[in-house]
């Protein structure tokens, strides 16, 4: 493991630990409004200042990191499993199944997901707690984000179908789902891992995009998306640099994931 990867591991560990320890590290609850100190610069009481409603920015960053970092991997896991099921099985079965699965995948890839997510949000019940809204947002992201990974997995599974060890297993009488589960799936693991790691930053950014549209995690709960909204209209880094902390954190986490991912990609498939 080279130095950069070690640094990435350390950075991720620090961020994850800090977010998990938000209850102890944060000076106040993420929803607590200090109305007499709105949009305040950093001070002893508020290390990263306060937002436009007087909420402690450090507390919101810590709790927001927890939400985004815990739920993005969960959504990535869901989408990777769906991709494995659809793409892996289609590649393994081949023929009409592969063509059908790929047609559905292409259709999904061609749909304007942003607008579909907006529409989906509009159909959800209004009276849901912020926590439920978080879960629903990431669940939707997970359910809708499987198609790219499915294509990759289909191609990988198709190449395995005619591999010698699969032919030998077939000749030995192993067939159907058992052959897929025992012999094909374990060999798809490196691709699955890679897809999982790729998806995490994608979902973090997707939630951030939804948050910017006001459609992600409901107030007063913070997420990186809602924290990044503060940067709208900010034209200079020098003006209020402390407002860029969530963005810096997002960049650090995404880069760390990318560095770790490059390690994963080196594993021979």
């Amino acid at each position: 493991m080279n130095l950069w990867r070690k640094l990435a591991c350390v950075a991720l560990a620090v961020v994850v630990c800090a977010s998990l320890g938000a209850n102890w590290l944060a000076p106040a609850g993420y929803e607590k409004q200090y109305r007499e100190a709105t949009d305040a610069p950093p001070s002893h009481a508020h290390w990263l200042g306060t937002d436009e409603l007087g909420r402690d920015r450090l507390a919101r960053v810590l709790y927001g990191t927890r939400i985004s970092l815990l739920l993005a991997p969960a959504a990535a896991l869901l989408s990777t499993l769906m991709a494995a099921f659809v793409g892996g099985l289609a590649g393994y079965l081949g023929g009409i199944w592969a063509r059908l699965a790929m047609a559905v995948t292409d259709l999904c890839l061609s749909l304007p997901w942003l607008f579909l997510l907006i529409t989906a949000r509009a159909f959800l019940p209004l009276n849901v707690s912020p926590l439920i809204s978080v879960l629903v947002t990431f669940l939707l992201l997970g359910l809708l984000g499987w198609s790219t990974a499915a294509r990759v997995l289909c191609a990988s599974a198709a190449s395995l179908r005619s591999a010698d060890f699969v032919r030998q297993a077939r000749a030995a009488g192993v067939s159907g789902l058992r052959l897929f589960w025992i012999h094909v799936m374990p060999n798809l693991k490196p691709v699955l891992y890679a897809q999982f790691w790729i998806s995490i930053p994608v979902f973090i950014l997707s939630e951030a995009n939804l948050g910017i549209l006001g459609l992600g995690v409901a107030e007063p709960m913070p997420s990186w998306g809602s924290l990044l909204r503060e940067l709208e209209g900010l034209v200079s880094v020098r003006e209020e640099p402390w407002k860029f902390v969530p963005l810096v954190l997002l960049v650090v986490v995404v880069m760390s994931f990318q560095l770790l991912l490059s390690r994963q990609q080196e594993v021979p498939a």
Binding site: Q33, L126, V128, L213
Partner: peptide, 18 residues
Amino acid sequence: IQDDLQKIGIHVNVVTLD
């Protein structure tokens, strides 16, 4: 308003829609 009403025990869910 969500915070104001919480002070008298009313829970408000804020929803933004297109």
